[in-house]
Amino acid sequence: MQQIVNFILRNKSFLFFLLLLSISVSLTIQSHSYHRSKFINSANFFTGGLYNTSNSISSYFNLEEENQKLNKENARLNTLIGNTKKESISYIDTTTFENTFKFTPARIIKNSYSKQQNVLLINKGKKDSIKDDLAVIDNNKIIGITANYNSKYATVISILNTTSRISAQLKKTNHFGTLSWNGKSPKVVQLTDIQKNAPVKIGDTIITSGRSSIFPKGILIGSIKDFKLDITENYYEINVSLFNDMTNLEHVMVIENKDKSLIEDLLNNE
């Protein structure tokens, strides 16, 4: 017994090192095996507050560019409204149309794209009825899915995250697959599990499939850069160049699918 106590006392700093090392390694493993870290995330009062302050200063630097972007978006929506009116008498917009999707505007206060697990931070949280697993888009182009949140901030798992998986499909046909990222370029993501008989061509548009009940169907992702068959020769592996410039983001929309719990209940019952 005396010897054990002596051993611990002699090696106390080494044992302390081992203890801290096991904590940090287990946090790392957790962040790799599960797509959100429960404890270590920037959606808390302190880190969120600091990023918010710094963003409120730096956002002035690209006001002009952001204004142009918003103008373009406005123009696109105006044409959409104008054209819809002509086509049919029943007037469609998101406030009346079945009311399935709820849009919340938000601002990105921390962007990241050079790492393997890129996580963004937005300035909306539980107060603005942000939950986990909501879609985040910019100008009808995909960005990511919300993960952790507190009262004022929420983290977003970017599509540029090696653990992110999103259901996507070809725009022309309904062949669908899984969108993931290999961690190499912030402009190119990978679409796998597309059936071999699907008509895949370079330049074709890829959109979200709406199957996961997170993203509505038809959010733009990118165009096909190149493709090849995988090892089993049954599925395509497609490189998709993103429409969105993930390195330059500011104003985004968070989309909540109000029917999500209904859909999930139905699927779970089967």
């Binding site: 090192f17 801290l20 090392l21 904590i23 940090s24 390694v25 287990s26 946090l27 790392t28 493993i29 957790q30 962040s31 790799h32 870290s37 270590i40 995330n41 920037s42 808390n44 302190f46 880190t47 600091l50 990023y51 990241s112 790492k115 697990q117 996580v119 931070l121 983290t155």
Partner: peptide, 15 residues
């Protein structure tokens, strides 16, 4: 790590 949302990467390397 808290700021970078990176699990325990920086903590491990620093330690």
């Amino acid at each position: 790590d808290f700021f970078m949302d990176s699990g325990g990467i920086n903590a491990t390397a620093s330690l």
